[in-house]
Design a protein around this nucleic acid. Structure first.
Length: 566
DNA sequence: AGCTTGAGCGCC
DNA sequence: AAAAGGCGCTCAAGCT
């Protein structure tokens, strides 16, 4: 059963909830003040309801603030974008014209941007506002869009897969809103102690922490330049050259191999500076409230379907601050990650049984060594990453022939994806998310001048074509892996809601591409580990049916996120 | 004064 | 030991 949630621009502050059928028949209808929205949803919130709304990141936080959770939804905006771009819906003309109403980009909340909110007088809230939607989307428009989407899916190639993708994307949107709401348990005291241990006491405004200041003195002495500012790339580079170092940049991998008294303090300075600026006291003040870091995810924010994040760098929490992620007293963290997800995904989408075989029940990289494909686990990893990313040089490239010989089907799939991209084409993930068309005219140049000699313009176009080929090569693997991860997350989320009572229930706290953290009462921790594995197996079946690929999960029960070794 | 860009570095 | 895919955040520097 579907209940469509909408708001009309003429009827500001009112929300309409209407029960509809897939054919568009309208049954029950309620129009309520926004203040009664959550209570009305709670009243209608049967297990078999799928809530259909314009945008989960707009509507769902309103419910969560009133402690109302829903099981399932259909996010019209996220689904519209997928269907519009998918190669499988070609010919569905109604999705080909630009439609700003449904293609608005989710942007940071009004607090930061001054963007419109849907209702007057509303405070900024802990979700996303929609810049594309200058006015609320009313019932008629929403229903029309919903019906179009169902039609387009039904008429597409592989409609079951596409339908699964829409369900998974929408479930991900629910999970993201919940994770934003509940937050990651974060011990500000642990974080602050860690900062003062590494950097020294918190400095005054405009000053550097003591440990960094000391390093600056050493750097200046070593370069014989009492005024060099290591924060200024240009200043620093000039000073390094003047001191006789043969460097073309100030990056740490170029500096690392040089022997000079400045290198050690400089590299150390960069490390501390990074911690101080990205995850120092300011970060702590800004992002941690009442023992929680409320990470703002942008579902579908990456073209491949991965999530992006906004504010606080939620998807880039460096290892040094992870000790501050600590379970509440009486609670535990279950930290789980899908081992070697992308290679396993590649084996499945290419139907490479030999490769799937190699990964069964064990470490895929070690299996490559055991089968004599490569000589060390490290080489296996380098070779596999090279296949996924398209490396053309170095150790990785030299290992490639061995991979091709061992897993021809898998390698053919990524090669085909690369060739498609190089010629300006589009590639599509397992569940139907398609890559964008390349921008610029490089491929026109190549088509027009296929045989012209190496001249700068053509060389530039060639180089852009190869870069785009590496992107499309990776797109099919990264994107399909993101789809598996969404299904995993969704399945886990559903399972967790069955545990405990509402006051002490395990919940998703963090999600990072192929990794998930559940915050759980201690007594459920073992069960959560089981559910994490169950959900992974289920995701594999949902995407790949009986194809014999396994998705092993490494899961630990811990007090701190940093207890999970990487 | 406020915006964008590039370098650099953290995460997967 | 370096290099390929995807991101976000910070700073300095250059721009309007």
């Amino acid at each position: 059963m579907y209940i469509l949630v909408s708001a009309s621009p003429e009827d500001r502050g009112r929300v309409t909830l209407r029960q509809v059928s897939a054919e568009g028949r309208v049954f029950d209808s309620h129009t309520v003040d926004e203040g009664n929205f959550a209570a009305t949803v709670e009243l209608l919130n049967e297990d078999d309801v799928r809530w259909v709304w314009s945008d989960t990141s707009y509507w769902y936080p309103k419910l969560l603030r009133q402690s109302v959770e829903v099981l399932r939804c259909h996010d019209l905006r996220l689904c519209h974008v997928i269907l519009k771009n998918s190669e499988w819906t070609r010919g569905a003309s109604r999705f080909e014209a630009p439609n700003p109403l449904w293609e608005g980009i989710a942007t940071p909340s009004a607090a930061n941007t001054g963007a419109n909110t849907l209702f007057d007088g509303e405070e900024s809230f802990d979700g996303l506002a929609l810049q594309g939607a200058s006015s609320p989307i009313d019932f008629d428009e929403s229903l029309l869009e919903f019906r179009r989407q169902l039609e387009v899916v039904a008429g597409s190639r592989y409609s079951e897969r596409l339908a699964l993708l829409l369900v998974a994307e929408s479930a991900g949107a629910l999970a993201a809103a919940e994770m934003l709401h509940y937050g990651i348990p974060w011990r500000a005291d642990v974080h602050a102690r860690l900062l003062s241990d590494i950097l020294g006491p918190r400095p005054q405004r405009g000053e550097r922490p003591a440990q960094m200041e000391q390093l600056v003195s050493r750097i200046r002495k070593a370069l014989d330049n009492p005024s060099v500012n290591p924060d200024s790339q240009q200043d620093l580079l000039r000073s390094l050259k003047r001191a006789g170092l043969a460097v073309s940049s100030t990056s740490k991998w170029e500096l690392r191999d040089i022997k000079h008294p400045v290198i050690e303090p400089l590299l150390r300075y960069k490390k501390l500076s990074r911690l101080y600026t990205a995850n120092g006291w300011n970060w702590l003040d800004t992002w941690v409230r009442d023992g929680r870091f409320h990470a703002e995810y942008i579902v579908g924010g990456v073209v491949t379907g991965r999530w992006a994040a906004h504010g606080g760098g939620a998807l880039q929490l460096p290892a040094v601050v992870r000790p501050a992620v600590v379970a509440d007293p009486g609670w535990k963290l279950v930290v789980a990650d899908a081992a070697q997800l992308e290679p396993r995904i590649l084996s499945a989408i290419s139907g490479d049984v030999a490769m799937a075989d190699a990964g069964r029940g064990q470490d895929l990289y070690q299996a490559l060594v055991d089968r004599g494909v490569v000589d060390t686990r490290e080489h296996a990893k380098i070779a596999m990453l090279g296949a996924l990313y398209g490396s053309t040089t170095g150790r990785s490239a030299s290992l490639m022939p061995r991979l091709v010989a061992a897993f021809p089907r898998a390698l053919r799939l990524v090669e085909d994806a690369a060739r498609e991209g190089e010629s300006g084409g589009i590639v599509t993930t397992w569940l139907g998310r398609s890559s964008p068309s390349p921008e610029g005219e490089w491929w026109v140049e190549l088509i027009r001048n296929p045989e012209s000699p190496a001249e700068p313009r053509r060389e530039k176009a060639r180089s852009k074509a190869r870069a785009w080929g590496r992107f499309t090569r990776n797109f099919v693997c990264q994107g399909s892996a993101a789809e598996w991860a969404l299904c995993w997350l969704a399945g886990l989320r559903t399972r967790l809601t069955q545990l405990g009572d509402s006051r002490a229930r395990p919940y998703l706290a963090y999600f990072l591409h192929d990794e998930v953290v559940v915050h759980t009462p201690e007594e459920y921790a073992e069960e959560v580990v089981e559910l994490v594995r169950e959900a992974a197996a289920e995701a594999g079946r949902l995407l790949f049916g009986v194809f014999p690929v396994e998705f092993p999960v490494e899961a630990i029960i811990a007090d701190s996120y940093s207890d999970a070794k990487k």
